[in-house]
Design a protein around this nucleic acid. Structure first.
Lengths: 146, 146
DNA sequence: TTAATCCCTATTGAATTAATAGAGTTATAC
DNA sequence: GTATAACTCTATTAATTCAATAGGGATTAA
């Protein structure tokens, strides 16, 4: 399972991506997305440090998307907050660590099975960009109205 | 990521499925799979309680597979030890819990995205039975020799 | 100069995880 | 019928991580 921090980050980003040019107050995002304000503060700061968000301090300030919604995908966000996407460390790429149980990765089918799952998951997470998520949301909402 | 407990359980089961009729001592599995003995003890007991393993007490005793290797898949094992397979609780089936962030699941694309990932993951985990894992292992080992 | 706003460090409490300790129970073999 | 091998069970602990909060500090606009 994802950490709450990661899930909060995703919801905050999707919220901002609905108005990609807008500037947002922590307080407003916090209320709109049901995220504890102080916790969100740390999250947005992290996202700023990683270059996804920009910010302006002082009165009239706020956070805004620095990257284009189409260029931010969930795989990156998940990795930033929760690390490896794979279910076992020996099947991870960016956070790879060997494991003591399967001595020979080449012939370990547990490794093999989780590698397949990791690859499929990463592919799907990469396809989920802020842009695609917001677009799909519009579709779902329109469909529901009818 | 899976817990160590869950990963250990999987490796122990695969080890046993290589000789599905055999009876195994905790100590031997522990050494073969590099799993702390006392920890493994608890794991095998859990697997016995859930019906996957059987055991015989006393001298000459040990653990053995009660279910056929083809009938034990990784989805069940993961659920038994780590709970939900989905990355967010609102996308889980057996461990479903609503989330505060997406007010309306029907139109929440975050929910939608993680539901797709969950479904694909479950499908793959279900396809990974002890039988299929052991068979594939044989293939990988044969291929490596050549 | 005041108020709004983001920035930063530290702390805390709860929960979970990984592992161990140690005694209890059961079955076999002699 | 006793010794021994093996699983069974409860409890405990140490370490880690997670979620959240506290409390100022720095910056900017009006």
């Amino acid at each position: 399972m994802l950490s709450k921090k990661c899930k909060y980050a995703i919801h905050a980003l999707v919220h901002m991506a609905r108005d990609p040019e807008e500037k947002f107050l922590i307080k407003d995002i916090s209320e709109a997305c049901n995220i504890p304000k102080k916790f969100l503060e740390a999250i947005l700061l992290d996202l700023k440090r990683s270059g996804v968000l920009g910010s302006k301090q002082g009165k009239g300030g706020g956070y805004f998307l620095r990257m284009k919604p189409a260029d931010v995908n969930l795989a990156e966000v998940v990795r930033q907050f929760d690390g490896a996407i794979a279910l076992v460390s020996c099947a991870a790429h960016k956070f790879y660590e060997p494991c003591a149980e399967c001595e020979d990765e080449e012939t370990c089918t547990v490794h093999d099975a989780f590698l397949q799952i990791r690859n499929a998951t990463v592919e799907m997470l990469k396809a989920d960009t802020l842009e695609s998520l917001v677009k799909k949301e519009a579709k779902l909402k329109a469909r529901k109205k009818r």
